[in-house]
């Protein structure tokens, strides 16, 4: 088939009218590129179609132009904005992982901090409690000291010196403050040494010649040398004895004695 026959076959018209399948389209385009006569003939057919279109032109509504230009302007801005999200979505796996990791780390941090906060709060409460205890203890001690001081200052209080019996090696002396008006007795322990191992000091009141136990002397608290001891109204004298640990009902070895009045 020569070029002239090809032009006259009607395939170019079919192509221009859009009636060719893809294989035929490719063939026409190849022929038009290869043979100027084919291209010229094809251009002429399209020129006719153009004339036909202009003959059948229908002016669109005037507002449509603005609408179309606006649609294109919008497509332009979308096109400009698109690259950013598209690269973001491309890198999303790593990005997402980092994000997840970050959130997880934050969660761990929140849990850690809240437990720390809880601990700190509890410690603070405990400290406050201890401080309050301490304060009340100090208050008690202060009150005790004040009442002891008031007792010492009381003119009704009588001082009883408890001194070692003659012939004993001990050199210490104890002061006992006895107040019948207030029914209170204090023992000043400052100079009393600890009892020998397995032994305890015990305090006695002598009533009508009979010793009456006032209890084993506890020496733990050196800071509080004034010890409140039981009040015995009819005491004639007070004695310190050395007893087996825990004390006895009757004195075993009287060490010191002091007469009341």
């Amino acid at each position: 088939m020569n070029v002239e026959q090809y032009i006259q076959s009607g395939i170019l018209e079919a192509y221009a009218l859009g009636a060719c399948n893809t294989a035929e389209q490719a063939e026409v385009e190849r022929m038009a590129a290869a043979y100027p006569e084919v291209k010229t003939a094809l251009d002429a057919i399209f020129a006719d179609l153009e004339k036909m279109a202009f003959a059948g032109a229908v002016p669109p509504p005037p507002a449509l132009k603005d609408r179309i230009m606006e649609a294109i302007a919008q497509a332009q801005t979308v096109g400009q904005e698109q690259p950013a999200p598209s690269t973001a979505s491309k890198g999303s796996p790593l990005w997402l992982w980092l994000m997840a990791l970050f959130i997880l780390a934050q969660g761990v941090l929140v849990i850690y901090l809240s437990t720390q906060l809880f601990k700190a709060k509890r410690q603070m409460t405990e400290t406050e409690q201890r401080m309050a205890d301490c304060e009340s203890r100090q208050q008690q001690q202060l009150q005790a000291a004040q009442s002891q001081l008031a007792l010492l200052a009381d003119p009704a209080t009588r001082l009883v010196r408890i001194s070692p019996l003659s012939g004993r090696s001990e050199t210490w002396q104890l002061a006992l403050y006895h107040n019948p008006t207030n029914a209170k007795t204090l023992l000043h322990l400052a100079t009393l040494p600890p009892a020998p191992a397995g032994k305890d000091w015990q305090l006695w009141a002598i009533v009508n010649g009979v010793p009456q136990s006032m209890g084993v002397i506890a020496l733990q608290n050196q800071a509080q040398p004034l010890l409140n001891v039981p009040f015995v109204a009819q005491a004639e004298a007070f004695a310190i004895s050395l007893e087996p640990a825990g004390g006895s009902t009757l004195p075993t070895e009287v060490v010191a004695l002091g007469k009341a009045g």
């Binding site: 009607g10 018209e13 079919a14 057919i45 006719d48």
Partner: peptide, 12 residues
């Protein structure tokens, strides 16, 4: 079909 298309376009 082809030849009629060509003729149609020529008349047009």
């Amino acid at each position: 079909v082809k030849t009629r298309m060509r003729q149609a376009m020529q008349i047009l």
